[in-house]
Structure formats: structure tokens, C-alpha cells
């Protein structure tokens, strides 16, 4: 497999390290707004890192920056580093990026129907992916690899499915095909961007099981991007919580759910209806709405919705503060 030899096996060196990443987008009015502003995160070898946040918080933009798939020309990496295997992907020339994208870093998307080509059979698309990244094999061999992959992701009658078109398959099947395609080259890192959001809950359970099984089988790292804290709790070992373009809290999954430190994380955890809560009672809420990225307040971005807001929050943006081992939160109220 590509990249197996120089794979990071040392548990302490991160496979992927993002430092102070700033990505901006051009608006119709000709301004540039920062979709993410100073994101730092590590992905360790063999872990599933969850990134959770609401729409517009920058979780997908972070993923697309790693893949160098930001929409052009609107999206641009302004500054920061994306270190993958000692190479800064943020500064890599587009043609050299191809050696990483798809073979060492793969991505699956929310809506598999838009990510698959509707006019080609599933088999042809899979074989194309295999041939593109493995230079010294023939078409026959690629075919058998593709069938094997389909079998591995739990598709019944893989031989027959190879000849079918994406529209003939259900949403769950399509997502399995996407996963097969993403894993066909044995990547070191899989980025899953809301992989189950478009699926029904019983099918979601199947796909999450599949991703966990494939991760355990190959030892790859996974970035699981979702808005669903339930999905995070079930899949991830560590979690980054994002809000309005920044990471507000990072912790291992048990710590995050048992002792969240940032007021946003706390509010989010409190506000979800659970099967055990008392019915027909008011849920705790985070008041207000996320500020617009084009009109951010100075200081903390959560200040207008925070129940612990202080004077300093209105002027100074909080830096990540250590709360415990491997647990940081960007909030002025911590330690006070």
C-alpha cells in the first residue's frame, strides 16, 4: 500500500497537525470573510477525532483545506500550516497534492449522490480510483481489488453491483460505495464529512459501525465531522468543538461529555432532547443566534449568547487554556 512504509507509528507524533490555520472566502460584496480563524488541531495515528459544531462553524472548511479542495477562486488559505507527514500541505503545489489526495488522505461526503458520477457504473468509478493511484497494476487486477473492496464494506452480490449506476442504489449503499472508494488505496487518514446526515437512523447505525470496523481493521486515522453529539459519542476518541470559525474546546470524548468546560459545549449538551428526559418540559437553551462571520464582535465570539459573559470577553478573544490533561477550552471564565 502507498505510504505504508513511512507511516507514523510513534504514538506521540501527530499524523496531521494543523497550526493557526486561517481560511477566507470572498463575498459577493467583494469583502473577504474568515470562515476559519486560527484553527489548531492534531490528529494522532490510529485515532478517530471528532469535530462537532453547527452549520457555518468552519468544520467542513477545515476538512476541505486539508484536502486542498476549497472552492476556487472564492476560498483561500491565508496563513497557517497543515503538516502531514512532515510536509506542509498548505503550501504544496497543486500537482504534488495529487500524491496525497485520494491515496494517503481520503474524504467521504454527506451526500454520496453528488459525489458519485451518475453516468458511470459503480465498477468503472472504483476501478478508475484504483488505477489512478496504483500505477503498476492491470485493469483485471484493479477489477478484483474493486470487488474485494465492495465485499469488505458489506455490499451483497458485489460482482453484480459493479455494473450498476449510482441511481440504482439506495442512500446507504451509495455511502458504502463511497467508503469503498475512499479506502481503496489504503489511506492513512480518512476525513468523513457528515457521512450519515442524509441517511435514516437505522442505516446510519450500519454506516457508523462500518467506519469503526474499517478504522480498527486498517489502523488509519479518521476525522469525523458532524453536528450530532450522539455520533461523536459513539465513534470518536477525542473531540474538537468548533464555534464561529474557532475551536472552543478540545478534550477526550469521556471528559467532554462528563465535564465540558466551555459554556457553548455545556449549553449544547444540555439542550439536546434525550430519551430519558422528562417529557413536555422546557429544554435548556442557548439563547440567540450565531453571529454572522462578516460582522463578528471583538473579543469572544460566543459573548452574545453566553451566560457567564464578563467585561474582558467583550474586548479580548480568549486563547485556549489548559483545563486538564489533553483538555483545553478557549474561555476567560476558566480558572476564575
Amino acid at each position: 500500500m502507498t505510504g505504508t512504509d513511512n507511516r507514523n507509528t510513534d504514538g506521540n507524533t501527530p499524523l496531521l497537525a494543523i497550526r493557526d490555520l486561517v481560511v477566507s472566502f470572498a463575498t459577493d460584496e467583494g469583502q473577504r470573510i474568515r470562515a476559519i480563524d486560527g484553527v489548531c488541531l492534531d490528529v494522532k495515528p490510529g485515532e478517530i477525532l471528532g469535530i462537532v459544531g453547527e452549520s457555518g462553524c468552519g468544520k467542513s472548511v477545515t476538512a476541505l483545506s486539508v484536502m486542498r479542495l476549497l472552492p476556487k477562486p472564492a476560498g483561500r488559505i491565508e496563513s497557517g500550516r497543515i503538516i502531514f507527514d512532515n510536509i506542509d500541505l498548505a503550501k504544496l503545489a497543486p500537482n504534488r497534492m495529487r500524491a496525497y489526495r485520494g491515496s494517503r488522505i481520503s474524504m467521504i461526503f454527506q451526500e454520496p449522490m453528488t459525489a458519485l458520477n451518475p453516468v458511470h457504473t459503480v465498477g468503472r468509478q472504483l476501478v478508475e480510483a484504483v488505477l489512478l493511484h496504483k500505477k503498476n497494476i492491470g485493469k483485471k487486477e484493479a477489477m478484483s481489488i474493486a470487488v474485494e473492496m465492495l465485499e469488505m464494506v458489506g455490499i451483497p452480490e458485489p460482482g453484480r453491483r459493479m455494473g450498476e449506476y449510482p441511481h440504482q442504489l439506495s442512500g446507504g449503499m451509495r455511502q458504502r460505495i463511497m467508503i469503498a472508494m475512499a479506502l481503496s488505496c489504503g489511506p492513512d487518514l480518512l476525513i468523513a464529512d457528515e457521512p450519515t446526515t442524509a441517511l435514516d437512523v437505522t442505516v446510519q447505525a450500519q454506516i457508523l459501525e462500518l467506519i469503526k470496523r474499517m478504522q480498527a481493521g486498517t489502523g488509519m486515522s479518521v476525522i469525523m465531522i458532524t453536528h450530532d453529539l450522539g455520533v461523536i459519542a459513539e465513534t470518536s476518541s477525542r473531540v474538537c468543538v468548533m464555534y464561529a470559525g474557532r475551536i472552543v474546546e478540545t478534550a477526550d470524548v469521556k471528559t467532554l461529555f462528563s465535564s465540558p468546560a466551555h459554556p457553548y459545549t455545556r449549553g449544547l449538551l444540555a439542550s439536546i432532547p434525550r430519551l430519558g428526559t422528562r417529557r413536555k418540559t422546557r429544554l435548556p437553551v442557548i439563547p440567540g443566534v450565531v453571529p454572522s462571520l462578516s460582522d463578528l464582535p471583538p473579543g469572544c465570539r460566543f459573548q452574545n449568547r453566553c451566560d457567564r459573559v464578563m467585561d474582558i470577553c467583550r474586548s479580548v478573544p480568549p486563547e485556549p487554556t489548559v483545563v486538564g490533561t489533553g483538555h483545553t477550552a478557549a474561555c476567560h471564565a476558566i480558572g476564575m
Binding site: A205, A233, V253, F257, L275
Partner: peptide, 9 residues
């Protein structure tokens, strides 16, 4: 049972 429970424990 398919609903992901927001509690890792």
C-alpha cells in the same frame, strides 16, 4: 437502539 446516544459511557 439505532439512535446514537450522546453519552460515551
Amino acid at each position: 437502539s439505532a439512535i446514537p446516544i450522546p453519552d460515551p459511557t
